[in-house]
Simulated scan of single mutants.
Amino acid sequence: MAAPDLLFNLRNNFYLGAYQAAINNSEIPNVSPDEAVERDCLVYRSYIALGSNQLVISEIDASAATPLQAVKLLALYLSASENKETTISSLKEWLADPAIGNIPTLRLVAGVIFMHEQDYSEALKHTNAGGTMELHALNVQIYLKMYRSEHAEKQLRLMQQIDEDHTLTQLANAWLNLAVGGSKIQEAYLIFQDFSEKYPMTGLILNGKAVCCMHMGNFDEAESLLLEALNKDAKDAETLSNLVVCCLHLNKPTGRYLSQLKGTHPEHMFVKRLATAEESFERAVQSVA
């Protein structure tokens, strides 16, 4: 008989965006040394997801295991724009080291960082071999960002062969359905609906349902889901950017949400694209004036 998976609930909380619950319920007795490292990685990644990068940087010292050092590297990368080159340089050195370069957490962090950099081919160089469900799920995300849904689907099939009911398999299925669109949107909605019935509601689940609603033209329902998500976390970038889009469709003012998004997440893709569009518009106006 297989031993019980002591970290199942902790992982699940993290995957579904219940970061504070992951932190609060991380005191798990009788874990092995390897499980303790994985537990600590999940806890610190939850802190990063909540924006507490400095806590992670200060608590993980030089004696910590390599997976934890990789998580610290992610916190360093996300905490300061001027140090990004140094952090990426350190990351590349570690990845080139045959003793540690293949550690799954390090490859996962590399995938996340290079995806942030929009260097998708570099990200895939380190994630494509898979090895964990998280790496497969990250591959799905990277391929969808590259508009290569056929490759994302291959990764999803691999995940389904490993564990069809795994939370990450279900999430990856929903992401792919959203990307494909059409009749698949309803299937994506049902996956998020199933999560909302099984687990406490999180911003990730609410945003998932809201995006499905917007695709289906149900903007009123989407707005109420997004406002519920905003009550849970007033600074969440996805909630704020989705609210801007939703309000545009409802002919409602977007200024407040947009200001919050620019103030708290100036590097967000939505903010950057908007700035580019505004610059293009200004140039067009000048050329006509």
Rank of each mutant, 00 (worst) to 15 (best):
E150F: 02
I48E: 05
N83H: 13
A80M: 12
I28T: 08
P29F: 11
Q69L: 14
Y44P: 03
N102E: 15
S79E: 10
T66H: 08
L42I: 07
L168R: 00
D165W: 03
I103Y: 06
I60C: 07
E164L: 10
A152W: 03
Q141H: 00
H116I: 07
W94N: 08
A110M: 02
A174F: 13
L76P: 08
L156V: 02
T127V: 06
A99M: 13
L171T: 08
N173C: 15
T167P: 03
A123P: 01
L158N: 13
L158G: 05
K72F: 14
Q155S: 14
P104I: 03
Y120C: 05
V56S: 13
Q69P: 13
L55G: 11
T105S: 08
Y143W: 14
E153W: 06
G131S: 00
R107S: 08
N83D: 14
L106F: 08
N30Q: 11
L108W: 08
K125G: 09
I28A: 14
C41P: 05
E153N: 08
I88M: 09
W175A: 00
D165R: 06
L144H: 04
E150N: 11
H126C: 04
G101E: 09
S79G: 03
A62D: 14
T66I: 15
T66P: 15
H136V: 02
R39P: 00
Y44I: 07
S90Q: 15
P98H: 10
M146F: 06
F114L: 06
S46L: 01
L135Y: 00
Y77C: 02
A75K: 00
E93P: 04
Q170W: 02
I162T: 13
G131E: 00
N128Q: 15
N173K: 15
A110F: 01
A174C: 11
K125D: 02
N53T: 14
E35L: 04
M115P: 07
W94D: 09
R107M: 05
D165V: 10
K92I: 09
A36L: 12
Y120Q: 05
S121Q: 15
I100S: 13
A75P: 11
C41S: 10
R148M: 11
Y44N: 11
M159T: 00
R107Y: 11
R157Y: 10
I103H: 08
D34G: 10
P33S: 05
V112Q: 03
V71D: 10
R107T: 03
L158Y: 02
V140L: 02
Q69K: 15
T127A: 03
D34K: 07
A99D: 11
V37R: 10
A129P: 08
P29D: 05
N53P: 06
S121T: 03
E85H: 12
V37F: 05
Q155L: 04
I100D: 08
T86E: 14
M146E: 13
V43S: 07
E38H: 04
S52P: 04
A62M: 12
N102H: 06
I113M: 12
C41W: 01
E164C: 10
L106T: 02
E117C: 09
K145Q: 15
L55S: 09
V140T: 02
V109P: 05
R45I: 06
T127L: 00
H116Y: 14
T167Q: 06
Q69Y: 04
A172V: 03
V31T: 11
V109Y: 01
V112F: 01
S90V: 11
N53A: 13
Q118M: 12
F114V: 01
N83K: 15
E85Y: 07
G131Y: 05
T86F: 07
Q160Y: 10
L73A: 07
Q118F: 14
K125T: 10
